[in-house]
Amino acid sequence: MHDLTQRTRPGANGTSGPNGTAARRRSPRELVPALAPLLGLVVLTVAFVVVGTVSGVNMSYSVQTLINQSVVIVIIATGAIFIFAMGSFDISLGASTLVAAMVGGLAYNATESLVAMLVACILTAVATSLVSASLAAVFNLPVFVTTVAMLSVLGAVAVALVQTTGGAQIKVDSSFARQYDTLPVKLSVAVAFLALCVFLFTYTRLGRVEKLIGGNPVTARLTGVSMKKTAIAAFAIAGLGVGLGAFLTVLRTPTMTTSSAADIGMNVLVAMVFGGMPISGGPRTRIYAALLGGLSMAVLNQTMTTLLATSSAGNGISQVVRALFFLAVVWVATSGHRSKLLPR
């Protein structure tokens, strides 16, 4: 995160430092890893434009598609950074998105109110998130395993929710959904939430404390940081992200089945890492990682679809390329922080 903020205001640094040396230029060795995710996105975007132009892709539609496909992931992943920054690992994000979206859908069907749907999505997601947080905090459980358990519970809840309708799906009136499934709505939700997250993470105590916990939980505790309060705040924000993501999901796909949103959970993870977020959290956490990574993934997916969809193994090959690109970006991004010992 610092790497990025420093990069974007090189002029301001010289003057703001208290003792002249405080804001020296970074050496290329540090800079390249820090910028690897951004470079990745640039390279991918160039490839996307080249491939798209050569193959005669409808570019304006394609760009809209990019936003459509990445906005939910970006929102959820940005919120989730608050969890991952502390060194916690939440694997149940996809499942809670589904449950929140379903409750939102049911709420809309009961009230026919957009606001009720939004509120229902957010409340459900935040509540779900807080259940994980309190299980972890009160009973000292590792968050990862708690959320593994939550994953199955939420899956079961989704089935139960579908059953309440006595049918295969939870369905929201699609003409209503279409009315709000627009770029301005998506972008304003995304911008508002991202701005909130960047603000909280960069300019308030919460972000600092989270990085401290991620860096060394014992030190954080002995510096008077309340693990429980921080964890609950982090999960609440992540929940808010999931709620907003769920809200946009209902608008985008008003027909929800138990297998909806299935791949969101893992895609969120890949997006974050792709964007340069260290999975163990800590001081090197970057709040922009989700945005970079989410866009990179969407651009890559689009490009690969254009290139490979006609061959029968195309989807497999495109995933192989995605995997290789992912590993390459992560490799370059972490190249500055390697020790003699293998990382764990």
């Binding site: 497999g316 995933q319 192989v320 995605r322 995997a323 992560v330 293998l342 764990r344």
Partner: peptide, 26 residues
């Protein structure tokens, strides 16, 4: 690569799944 094993395994999972698919055409 010397990257975090969990992150590494994410990439490897995608890789192996992709290869399985490519071999069988899905």
């Amino acid at each position: 690569l010397g990257i975090s094993p969990m992150v590494c395994s994410l990439g490897i999972t995608l890789l192996y799944e992709g290869i399985s698919f490519a071999i069988t055409g899905g």
